[in-house]
Simulated assay, not measured.
Amino acid sequence: MVLEGSCRLVGPADAEPVGLGPGDLVFLPHGSGLTLTDADGTAVSEPACAPGDPDLSAAFTSDHVDRTGSDGPSTTLLCGAYRLDPARTHPLLRSLPELIHLPARGDRRPELDAAVDLLAREVRTPRLGTDAAVPALLDLLLLYVLRTWFAGEAARGSTQGWSAALNDGPVTAALHALHRDPAAPWTVAGLAAEAGLSRAPFARRFTALVGQPPLGYLTWWRMTTAARLLQTGDDPLRTIAAQVGYASEFAFAHAFKRAHGTSPGAYRRAALAG
């Protein structure tokens, strides 16, 4: 996010350079490498942020800057990153392009601009509670960036994949239902009822838009939710099993190992060690 000044984004891959000004947002869903230069395209020796950087904090510090020619105009940027498990990345993110550019003067939603303004204020002038406010605002910013992008795709009539799924009322209703209560004993017929469709048309529609059959996606979501619970809490395995729809710890462990290649206990130990 450009707070003040201007720059030029080069990359990823063979994409055309993008000029950035105050309030502009750039989102790279796949962690592609990028380079930021002066507006005149000053040559650089290496990307400022490289994909797979083992120390993301180093890649985003204010000192990670080439100050050659620092007597000229200055540009202030706010950069951040999310660490994601590549094996469990949600298909919604995988369906996004390499680069999303949301210009300040573009067709942006008011809530996105409000999140940008609030985040910029907290970063520029840290106050009591800033450490708690910034992570929450970053989460909101990501949400609003995705909303803005998908709304733009729908307005342009270019929806496909998850973009189309999130603009399809019946499929969205089914997704909300299984996300809201993954432990429920869902069947295709039950999800079809949530969608307001008969069983066969719903199954075809869901699979075509989401890329997985309804119960296949349900299992994926349950295992992803279980992994998060194992990483972030200390509930016993039987409790987590019940939270994701398994009547026994044994059945849960078997399904988890099939999905993640390791037992729930080993997964939790590895997460704690990391």
Rank of each mutant, 00 (worst) to 15 (best):
1 M>G: 10
1 M>D: 08
4 E>D: 13
5 G>Q: 00
8 R>A: 10
9 L>Q: 03
12 P>G: 05
14 D>K: 14
17 P>Y: 03
19 G>A: 12
20 L>I: 01
21 G>E: 03
21 G>R: 02
21 G>Q: 04
23 G>N: 04
24 D>Q: 01
33 G>F: 07
34 L>C: 11
35 T>R: 07
35 T>I: 11
36 L>C: 08
37 T>A: 03
38 D>W: 15
43 A>M: 05
44 V>C: 08
45 S>T: 14
46 E>Y: 09
48 A>M: 12
51 P>M: 03
51 P>V: 03
53 D>K: 08
54 P>N: 06
56 L>R: 04
57 S>I: 15
57 S>L: 14
57 S>R: 14
58 A>S: 11
58 A>T: 11
60 F>N: 08
65 V>A: 09
65 V>E: 04
66 D>H: 06
70 S>G: 13
71 D>W: 13
73 P>F: 02
74 S>T: 15
75 T>L: 06
76 T>I: 07
77 L>D: 07
77 L>W: 00
77 L>I: 06
82 Y>N: 13
83 R>Y: 10
86 P>S: 09
88 R>Q: 12
89 T>Y: 12
93 L>S: 05
94 R>F: 13
98 E>M: 11
102 L>H: 04
102 L>G: 03
103 P>E: 00
104 A>K: 07
106 G>I: 01
107 D>K: 12
108 R>L: 10
110 P>H: 02
112 L>P: 10
115 A>C: 12
117 D>L: 13
120 A>I: 12
123 V>Y: 06
126 P>E: 08
128 L>K: 12
130 T>N: 05
137 L>W: 00
139 D>E: 15
139 D>V: 15
145 V>T: 09
148 T>W: 08
151 A>P: 09
151 A>E: 10
151 A>I: 11
153 E>F: 03
154 A>Y: 04
155 A>C: 09
155 A>L: 09
158 S>G: 13
159 T>K: 07
160 Q>F: 06
161 G>E: 00
162 W>G: 00
170 P>L: 02
172 T>F: 12
174 A>W: 00
177 A>S: 02
178 L>N: 05
180 R>A: 12
182 P>A: 01
183 A>R: 02
185 P>G: 10
185 P>E: 06
186 W>K: 05
191 L>C: 03
192 A>P: 11
192 A>Y: 02
193 A>R: 10
194 E>W: 01
194 E>I: 02
194 E>R: 04
195 A>C: 06
198 S>Y: 10
200 A>F: 09
201 P>H: 01
204 R>T: 12
206 F>A: 05
209 L>I: 02
211 G>S: 01
212 Q>A: 14
213 P>T: 14
217 Y>K: 05
217 Y>E: 07
222 R>H: 02
223 M>D: 06
223 M>F: 00
223 M>T: 02
225 T>A: 11
226 A>P: 04
226 A>N: 01
233 G>T: 14
233 G>C: 14
233 G>D: 13
234 D>Y: 08
236 P>I: 02
237 L>K: 12
238 R>A: 11
241 A>Y: 00
245 G>K: 02
245 G>T: 06
249 E>W: 11
250 F>R: 15
255 A>T: 07
257 K>G: 11
257 K>Y: 10
258 R>A: 14
259 A>R: 07
259 A>D: 09
259 A>C: 12
260 H>A: 00
261 G>F: 00
270 A>N: 07
272 L>F: 11
273 A>E: 08
